[in-house]
Write a protein that binds this DNA or RNA. Structure first.
Length: 443
RNA sequence: GUGGCUGUAGCUCACUCGGUUAGAGCACCGGUUUGUGGUACCGGGGGUAGCGGGUUCGAAUCCCGUCAGCCACCCCA
């Protein structure tokens, strides 16, 4: 016997989880489309050179790679941004700019697993390329907000920063050259103590006063106006830092104008993110009740998406929802419960002699858009109802020989444990109306 | 990838110093005289104790390896 098992970091999805995932995907699709983002898709497999081109050592280590049957060196995509860069370079001329796309697909990373960290998981990306407008930046924040709100996440916070603020402060402190190391250390705040981070900074040759300034900046929190005020002092009157602060001001004002509840979007100067290609706004979002899960939706602005593949500069801004991490978080918070079946109506298979009638009834209900589960065999009624009950199907129709003779049907409200008799006399529209009325009472 | 913790039925767990055919609750399947669910009663299936090896007269219990989950680091969704 072969032991049935799955690879480390790869998971099966039972109906309850798969349905929860599809619900989130449906919401994401709807929200993305509501802003005019268009769907694209790309292959799971790419030429290795396409994926490793900009490759940091880190992504290189995580890449699933192999030689295919034709001797080609190939790799499985580890995010949706790199394939999009290739895609954009290859198709700009057909797309027109600015171009807004969303892409929801599976990616693979051979890294060590943990809660909310898998080797196979889905990302739901959206990007706007071909414009440097702050409106595009703002729109990203709005999409993230609408997305999490529409998914039904009860408590979340979108943390926003701007790389130019970080750059500006580092510049004024004369630390521009060692930005990467400094940012990496600052990023540990929240996990490591300020003292530990200060020590790490000192080890990099950062002066004590400069370190104090950086720590103060990264720890700034509170009302946006207050944080922005202090940041403005730290970055000075002019230069990139001041521009970054102004941009953040615009984001806060724009989010408010668009109706985002105050407090959902906060300025967090400690957000540095993937120190490589982000150049402007950066954002991360967290579940307030489970911050240790990490960011569930992150992104930012980049100067040049596809420089590796084309000479045409393609600036853009985008973010990615980690749907599997989000679902893991919601489940842990007890917000993940849901039905085990999409069926809305259970049609009991009572009397085999009336099979044709059952098929006609099911077809009529399905044509009307209802999800109908017709039991495949004329098993004992009690067992059929037990299954319907366990699955959480809200409505059940029981129609046996007596009912057919009388022109009636028994319609059960499974949750309320009640039943009504519907006189339909062969008219499926009457049955349909009765079922719809029942379903409507439960929202 | 590095370090640590964990691994007994689908799930949550038990098995006192290693000692006979590894148990319970829930879940699942069936029944309670053949047309009605979530309650009750009765019965049933399911575990070579993740897998492999070692120590021992004897291991779920000790040791090693491996696989997997979790935690920290790294990085990130």
């Amino acid at each position: 016997m072969i032991q049935p098992r799955t690879l480390k970091g790869f998971r099966d999805h039972l109906p309850a989880q798969a349905l929860a995932r599809e619900r989130v995907l449906d919401v994401a699709r709807r929200v993305y489309r509501s802003y005019g983002f268009a769907p694209i898709d790309t292959p799971a497999l790419e030429y290795l050179e396409v994926l490793t081109g900009k490759g940091s050592e880190e992504t290189d280590k995580q890449l699933y790679r192999f030689t295919d049957h034709g001797g080609r060196e190939v790799g499985m995509r580890f995010d949706l941004t790199v394939p999009f860069a290739r895609f954009a370079a290859q198709h700009v001329n057909e797309l027109g700019l600015p171009f807004k796309r969303y892409h929801m697909a599976t990616v693979w990373r051979g890294e060590n697993t943990q809660r909310g960290r898998y080797r196979e998981f889905m990302q739901c990306d959206f990007d706007t390329i071909g414009t440097t407008s702050p409106v595009a930046d703002l729109e990203m924040v709005l999409v993230v907000h609408d997305l999490l709100a529409a998914i039904g996440v009860e408590r979340f916070t979108i943390r926003v920063n701007n790389r130019r603020v970080l750059g500006g402060v580092l510049g004024r402190l004369g630390l521009a050259a060692q930005a990467t190391g400094v940012l990496r250390s600052l990023d540990k705040l929240g996990k490591a103590s300020p003292e530990a981070v200060a020590a790490e900074l000192a080890a990099q040759g950062v002066a004590e006063s400069a370190a104090a300034t950086l720590l103060e900046m990264a720890a700034l929190s509170g009302p946006a106006e207050q944080v922005l005020g202090r940041l403005a002092e730290l970055v000075g009157e002019e230069g990139p830092g001041a521009a970054g602060v102004a941009a953040l001001r615009g984001i806060i004002a724009g989010a408010a104008a668009a109706g985002v509840p105050a407090g959902r979007v906060v300025i967090d100067p400690g957000i540095a993110r993937g120190l490589d290609y982000y150049t402007g706004i950066v954002l991360e979002s967290f579940l307030d009740d489970l911050p240790s899960l990490g960011s569930i939706c992150s992104g930012g602005r980049y100067d040049d998406l596809a420089g590796l593949y084309t000479k045409q500069p393609l600036p853009g801004v985008g973010a990615s929802l980690g749907i599997d991490r989000l679902l893991a978080g919601l489940e842990e918070l007890g917000q993940g419960g849901g039905p085990e079946t999409p069926a809305q109506v259970f049609l009991a298979h009572f009397d085999a002699a009336h099979l044709a009638d059952y098929l006609r009834i099911a077809a009529a209900l399905r044509r009307a858009g209802l999800a109908v589960e017709f039991f495949p065999e004329p098993k004992k009624l009690g067992q059929q109802l037990k299954l319907a009950s366990k699955r959480g199907i809200p409505a059940a129709l029981v129609i046996g020989g007596d009912e057919f003779a009388a022109g009636t049907a028994q319609l059960k409200n499974m949750a309320a444990e009640t039943a009504t008799t519907v006189a339909w006399h062969g008219d499926e529209q009457i049955l349909l109306a009765a079922v719809r009325a029942l379903l409507a009472t439960r929202g």
